[in-house]
């Protein structure tokens, strides 16, 4: 299964649980909500979507099946923003 990791080392500010990620090379700034920030913190090292789902379920004590879809969409969005890449 594919694993993902931060594309590079970005400057990150945390404000009220949200993360503001500064991509100085692309001159872009990206803001993540609280759960997005938690998922972002998991991607410091290679992490599969399955691992992220399990960690989020444990951390937030939820068993909701929609989490799987939420995280897949979130990871796709981070890829589109150029913030993560496939770890190989």
């Amino acid at each position: 299964m594919a694993s993902y990791i931060h594309k590079e080392k970005f400057e990150v500010l945390e404000l009220d649980g949200e993360s503001v990620i500064l991509n100085a090379d692309a001159f872009m700034v990206t803001t993540l909500n609280e759960v997005g920030s938690f998922c972002w913190s998991l991607l410091h090292e290679p992490c599969t979507i399955r691992q992220m789902i399990q960690t989020v379920q444990t951390h937030y004590a939820v068993e909701d099946e929609s989490i799987e879809q939420d995280i897949e969409q979130f990871v796709t969005h981070l890829m589109d923003c150029g913030l993560i890449r496939h770890a190989s």
Binding site: T30, N33, E34, V35, F38, V62, C81
Partner: peptide, 20 residues
């Protein structure tokens, strides 16, 4: 002691605006 779960979201993705 758990935080509330909301779907993880990218709230904003925008270019940096420079004020000179």
């Amino acid at each position: 002691m758990k935080p509330a779960y909301h779907a993880p979201k990218v709230l904003k993705h925008q270019p940096i605006r420079f004020e000179t």
